[in-house]
């Protein structure tokens, strides 16, 4: 089967700043993104869990966005000032998709 090269951007970020990131993504001509809850993990300050958290401050979310490689750099440039001071991780990876026209 023929597959096509794309860039997958993963942004793991604190829940309170979700709308800042999605508003920025919305300003780009991309086909979409998905937001997933992160259940638990461990970072510089030890382990944490979403269980029982009453405030959004203790929650982490992951945004997954698959875009054409030509758009990835501009998106990362726009996202960087938002996530720079926050807790989280931004990664990109090369992936292949089966529907070229969907992205």
């Amino acid at each position: 089967m023929e597959t096509f090269p794309k860039t997958r951007i993963e942004i793991t970020i604190e829940a309170p700043i979700l709308s800042r990131v999605t508003q920025t993504l919305d300003s780009f001509p991309i086909s979409g993104y998905s937001v997933l809850p992160v259940i638990s993990g461990r970072g510089h300050d030890g382990s944490w869990s979403i269980a029982g958290q009453i405030s959004d401050a203790g929650r982490m979310l992951m945004i997954i966005c698959i875009v054409d490689p030509s758009k990835a750099e501009a998106i990362l440039q726009a996202i960087f000032p938002i996530v720079q001071g926050q807790i989280g991780i931004v990664t990109t990876s090369d992936v292949r998709v089966i529907r070229q026209d969907a992205f």
Partner: peptide, 22 residues
């Protein structure tokens, strides 16, 4: 506070360590 302010502080003062205040 531990409901409204922690979230607001992540928006307003992201350099602060949230674990200390909470």
């Amino acid at each position: 506070s531990y409901i409204a302010v922690p979230a607001a502080m992540r928006l307003a003062l992201p350099q602060a360590n949230p674990a200390i205040a909470l």
